[in-house]
Design a protein around this nucleic acid. Structure first.
Lengths: 354, 354
DNA sequence: CCTCGTTTTGGTATCGCTACCATGTCTCCC
DNA sequence: GGGAGACATGGTAGCGATACCAAAACGAGG
């Protein structure tokens, strides 16, 4: 039987494989694999030689082969609803980065918050061979979606749910503590007449933020009753709420909106009424979304490390899926990451205290 | 020590493979492969049977194996600088979707616009085994980065550069035509005293938009000279430009800002001066970025199909890389996609014409 | 010196899929 | 009738990596 000289299929220049490195370094492919993967049981000399060879040849492991051989390369889903675009983009960056690190594939799926739409989305994910799903807000609040996913035996990590759901893993910041901190900051500036705009009632984060605000007010004591309006996280709802807050004397000297979009609306409404921010009115928000730095004056707000949270969510998912395969019980983990109070120009001491 | 009866490596339940389907359908794995990949030379009966089996078993091809066998699964880079977040998120969605479709991996890399930073970023991409790169704006304008990438023998697709660079493939809208169309729209509403705010001079899109505006004005004829200010695509610069445009009588009745952020700034400045939009002043933007729909009144603007463009960019990259491997000459392709004029509330007939 | 355990290395068998070739069938047409 | 050609299917050999096991090298203790 005559064998063709080159068995290789595509005529083009093949990339460097583990065998090339092995030959070059004078060791077996296995040894190279161990070095590359940081395995133990390799002598220092060998390790050096191999790493040298890797660098010389510019070797980079073939992900497909690696995944195939090690039964990795699962697909993870990212089911997104209608978060603010800036949130989503940071989220995607973090998630994709982590996915690349773990060698898993990330499948995006968009989904409205109706039962029918979520059923369809879940079906598409299942069809796509997805084994775990990351749920950014606001989808993470939907019990329907979570149930739907669980019925399909998917692992779930919810991100930034105000209160972690009992039935899923979760990555979040401490909304309560963050809101409390922000409120304490306002009080420390000397504000006494406070206004607060609540977030959408169907998101648990809204209540946590509200509770944090109330707790700080309570702790401080001897303050006039803060004025509170209901908002829905949209610019429009912020406009309405601000209108009400600024219609009744005595005006608040500081307004804490439960997110940045509503805070931006407060600023717009304040300007419309001839109030200057921050001199006549301090405005603070929550989320540190893109708009916060892109309006004037810049918005003092709470920063969430969104990319990091997304990354951790993927990490948890991968750990759960791989761990689960080994039989390790996957108890739901709730992970809390640090937030940060970002001070910009929209907050200042009240006139009376200046 | 208990030995699993199965030779399979991981103890967990294996997923459905092509062989399972083949057995179930009573054909060979090859036939299944052909059906799944839409190959020709399969009889209709067989195709039906196989598809049936696929559905029954819930088969989903293993990407890793497929990539390995077909020498696909290249890595594509997405080098992003500092575009607006809403732009990036849509972009990512489109790019990731296309990447998934083609079975290629998408590697994200962030990069400032300095030569040193771009060199580092390119090196990281090369080290990551990336063979092609998508360049969203504003990085796509950087000749430094393009040169750097080309030196590393990468394929490049620039997205949304105003004028396609000669040395790279490109996906874009027709900025000239879009700006012209928008201007014609303003003229058709009856506006005669126009203001225009230019974009950042280091982006070719700025000039295309300006040219489109000028062309429409020229074609219309018999108009007072439009007033023009230089902007830099930022909210801040829009504020300054608007200040100048609204400081001199007679005021323009319509202002066309080269992007939405600046248009939003024009609205803010107009409100500050007690002008009502759109009754006293029509304001239009460009990009249909997130802010356009999230301010009041909603911004009339030009919509770019960002996700689609990102997807096409990846498509082109994949085609170039795979085509190039087959020896097909990869001439730089410039692809133009359709834009759309989105009318919202910020534009109306001028008072005088009402 | 030999056995035992630990470290270090290599060989072999896959992982799931597709490229490539071989092997049949059926037509069609001279 | 028989060869050419299109169509339909199956067999085999990898793709590039790792898992698993075997074997060699080494040191220590009896």
């Amino acid at each position: 039987m005559n064998k063709p000289a080159r068995k290789s299929r595509s005529g083009a220049r093949r990339s460097v494989t583990i065998k090339d490195v092995a030959r070059y370094a004078g060791v077996s492919p296995m040894t190279v694999s161990r070095v590359v993967n940081g395995g133990q049981y390799v002598s220092d000399v060998t390790r050096q030689t191999v790493m040298q060879a890797v660098r010389q040849l510019g070797y980079s492991p073939n992900l497909a082969a690696r995944n195939l051989a090690s039964a990795r390369g699962e697909r993870m889903g990212l089911l997104y609803g209608n978060p603010s675009a800036s949130y989503l983009s940071e989220f995607l960056v973090g998630a994709l980065d982590a996915a690349t690190r773990h060698g898993v594939q990330l499948v995006l799926e968009k989904c409205e918050m109706t039962p029918a739409a979520s059923r369809r989305a879940v079906r598409r994910l299942v069809a796509g061979g997805v084994v775990g799903v990351v749920l950014p807000p606001p989808l993470c609040e939907s019990a329907v979606i979570r149930a739907e996913l669980q019925a399909a035996r998917m692992r779930i990590v919810a991100v930034a749910a105000g209160r972690p759901p009992a039935d899923a893993m979760c990555v979040s910041i401490d909304d309560f503590a963050a809101a409390r901190e922000m409120t304490q900051y306002l009080l420390a500036l000397g504000h006494t007449r406070l206004g607060f705009i609540k977030g959408h009632p169907n998101q648990t984060a809204s209540e946590e933020r509200w509770r944090g605000f109330a707790a700080a007010v309570e702790e401080h004591g001897k303050l006039p009753e803060p004025r509170v309006e209901q908002g829905f996280f949209t610019f429009r709802s912020g406009l309405d709420a601000a209108g009400k807050l600024l219609a009744v004397e005595p005006l608040p000297t500081a307004i804490f909106a439960s997110n940045d979009d509503m805070a931006a609306a407060v600023m717009a409404e304040a300007h419309r009424r001839g109030l200057e921010v921050p001199n006549d009115l301090t405005v603070v928000g929550f989320d540190d979304s893109l708009i916060a730095a892109n309006i004037w004056p810049g918005l003092t707000t709470i920063h969430q490390p969104i990319a990091q949270m997304a990354g951790e969510a993927v990490d948890m998912l991968v750990a759960a899926v791989r761990g689960g395969r080994r039989g390790a019980a996957a108890e739901p983990v709730h992970r809390q990451v640090a937030h940060e109070l970002i001070t910009r120009e929209s907050a200042a001491r009240p006139r009376s205290a200046a």
